[in-house]
Nucleic acid binder design. Structure first.
Length: 226
DNA sequence: GCGACAG
DNA sequence: ATCTTGTCGC
């Protein structure tokens, strides 16, 4: 598939932050989804010496969740990991995997934050803008905001708002009973409510929803080099 | 100013 | 994220 080249990737941390501020104003938090027939999951694995990375994208049917396409792409990492600037480290490689994709997904689930980010531009938002496809941020740990731990019961499906500066930036969602929750937020072209619905619909047997769980597994595939 | 900090 | 074996619990 093809996408919009919004900017260069070899930028300084200061330039990256400036870009995030500009891009954040372009994020759409309303639902603009077409009939969702295909959902993709994306994740990335890093090499032993953190010199290279391998991005994996898995496309599954919805709501049956059957895999219809898988693509991986390896590349050198340009930037180190800096909290808040994750997309500048991982997206170049992830976009390489999307270039190889034949089946265009209607919705994408990303391993990382959406707008639940210091400048409201997590990796899911950034990817959504480059692809112009709805994206959901599915983080395994918190980056920004706070929530009432007591408002989250042990049962699957339980959730409580993630709040920052007086506004709801995401939902802390329990995808499995008695298992650590996930931090869900809108990426681009989708509402928070709809995001949570899709995550729960794809969280069948594990903590991670099937799209990102399978992408995570594929990126770590031991039968490949790196 | 101090501490926290997705993957 | 990654380094790593067995082990507790449903």
């Amino acid at each position: 598939m093809i996408f919009n080249k919004l900017h260069e990737w070899n930028v300084s941390p200061e330039q990256a932050i400036a870009l995030q501020r500009t891009l954040a104003s372009q994020i759409v938090q309303e639902d603009y989804l077409s009939d969702v027939q295909f959902i993709a999951g994306v994740d990335m694995a890093l090499s032993l010496h953190h010199g290279r990375g391998r991005a994996a994208v898995v496309v599954l049917t919805y709501p049956d969740l059957h895999v219809v396409e898988e693509q991986v792409h390896e590349d050198v990492l340009l930037m180190p990991y800096i909290p808040g600037l994750l997309s500048f480290r991982e997206l170049p490689c992830i976009l390489g995997a999307f270039e190889k994709l034949v089946r265009i997904p209607d919705l994408i689930m990303v391993d990382g934050m959406g707008i639940a980010h210091p400048r409201r531009l997590g990796i899911a938002c950034h990817l959504g803008l480059w692809l112009n496809i709805p994206t959901i941020g599915c983080g395994k740990s918190i980056l920004a905001g706070k929530y009432d731990h007591n408002a989250l019961s042990e049962e699957k499906g339980s959730c409580t708002p993630l709040i920052s500066r007086g506004t709801i930036i995401g939902q802390v969602v329990r995808t499995r009973t008695k298992v650590a929750p996930l931090f869900i937020s809108s990426g681009h072209l989708i509402s928070l409510k709809t995001s949570v619905e899709y995550v729960l619909a794809c969280a069948t047997k594990y903590r991670l929803p099937e799209p990102t769980r399978l992408a995570d597994k594929l990126s770590k595939d031991k039968t490949r080099s790196l």
